[in-house]
C-alpha cells in the first residue's frame, strides 16, 4: 500500500460532496427546485441565484443539487446491474470453461460488435424511454467487460493452491466459487466499476439529453441541459452550469478510479 495520491483524494472529495447533495439536498439548496418565481424569469447568475434561473424562474443551483440524487443513482445502477450480471457470468465460465465458455464468448464478441450507444438506444426505443428501461438496456449491453475481466481472473484463481485445498476439504462448488474465488478475483472488477461510473454519468445524462433517459420534470443534469438548449444564445447559463457540474462529477469518478487502480496496483 502506498500513500493515497492527491488526485484520489480530490476525486473522493468530489464524490463525498455529491453524496451529501444526494442525501440531504434541502440542506444545500437555497430554494425549492420546483418552485416557479415569475419575478425572476431567465435571471442571469447573481448573489441571489448563483447559477441563474430558467424560463420559469426556477433556481438552477437548487435544481442542479436536487439532480445529484438521480445522477448518483444512474452512476451506481448503470454499473451495479451490468457489473453483477457480467461478474457472475464471468465467474461461472471462468470456472467451468468448455461449451458454456465458448457460447458466452461468442455472445460477448457479438455484443461488442454493436456500437455501445447505438444498441442501448435501439433497446430503449423498443422498451420505451425512461430510467428503468435505460437500466435494462445498459445491463443487456454493458455486462461484457465485467465478464471478460472476471473470467480471466477466475481462470487464474482456480489453479491456486487454496482452491486445491478447498477441494481436498470437500467444500461444495458454490462455496469455493463465492466464498473463496470471488473475493480474490473481484478487485480488478471493482476498480473497473469505479471508472465505469464516470462513463455511466456521461451516458445517463446523454440519454436524458436525448429524451430517452430520465423524463422531465425529474431534475437530471442531462435533462436540465436539454431544457436550456433553446436558450443558449439568450440565457446560456441554463445549460452551462449543469454541464459544468457533470464534468466535475465525471472527474470525481475517473480520478477516484485511476487513483484506486494505482493504489491497489491493478493493471489495466
Amino acid at each position: 500500500m502506498k500513500r493515497p495520491p492527491t488526485p484520489l483524494l480530490g476525486g473522493l472529495a468530489i464524490l463525498g460532496l455529491m453524496v451529501a447533495f444526494a442525501v440531504a439536498p434541502d440542506v444545500f439548496s437555497p430554494y425549492d427546485p420546483l418552485a416557479f418565481d415569475f419575478s425572476a424569469l431567465l435571471a442571469p447568475p447573481s448573489w441571489a441565484h448563483p447559477f441563474g434561473t430558467d424560463q420559469f424562474g426556477r433556481d438552477l443551483l437548487s435544481r442542479s443539487i436536487s439532480a445529484a440524487a438521480i445522477d448518483l443513482q444512474i452512476a451506481v445502477f448503470a454499473t451495479f446491474f451490468p457489473g453483477t450480471l457480467g461478474a457472475l457470468l464471468g465467474l461461472l465460465i471462468g470456472w467451468y470453461g468448455g461449451l458454456a465458455d465458448a457460447v458466452i464468448g461468442r455472445l460477448m464478441d457479438l455484443v461488442a460488435t454493436f456500437p455501445f450507444l447505438v444498441l442501448v438506444i435501439a433497446i430503449v426505443a423498443i422498451l420505451g424511454p425512461g430510467l428503468a428501461n435505460m437500466y435494462v438496456a445498459i445491463t443487456i449491453v454493458g455486462w461484457v467487460p465485467y465478464a471478460r475481466l472476471m473470467r480471466s481472473e477466475a481462470m487464474v484463481q482456480k489453479n491456486g493452491e487454496y482452491v486445491a485445498a478447498c477441494k481436498v476439504l470437500g467444500y461444495s462448488t458454490p462455496r469455493i466459487l463465492f466464498r473463496h474465488i470471488l473475493p480474490n478475483a473481484i478487485r480488478p472488477v471493482l476498480v473497473y466499476a469505479v471508472t465505469a461510473m464516470a462513463l455511466a454519468i456521461l451516458l445517463g445524462s446523454s440519454l436524458g439529453y436525448l429524451g430517452l433517459g430520465a423524463q422531465p420534470p425529474t431534475a437530471e443534469w442531462g435533462v436540465l441541459i436539454a431544457d436550456g438548449k433553446n436558450f443558449f444564445t439568450t440565457a446560456p447559463w441554463i445549460a452551462l452550469f449543469p454541464g459544468t457540474v457533470i464534468v466535475i462529477a465525471g472527474l470525481g469518478f475517473s480520478l477516484t478510479g485511476d487513483g484506486l487502480a494505482d493504489l491497489l496496483e491493478v493493471k489495466r
Binding site: 446523454s206 452551462l240 454541464g243 464534468v247 475517473s254
Partner: peptide, 12 residues
C-alpha cells in the same frame, strides 16, 4: 477534463 465532458455539453 475532455474525457469527463459529455459530448452534448462540449457541443453546446
Amino acid at each position: 477534463v475532455g474525457l469527463s465532458s459529455p459530448i452534448f455539453y462540449v457541443g453546446l
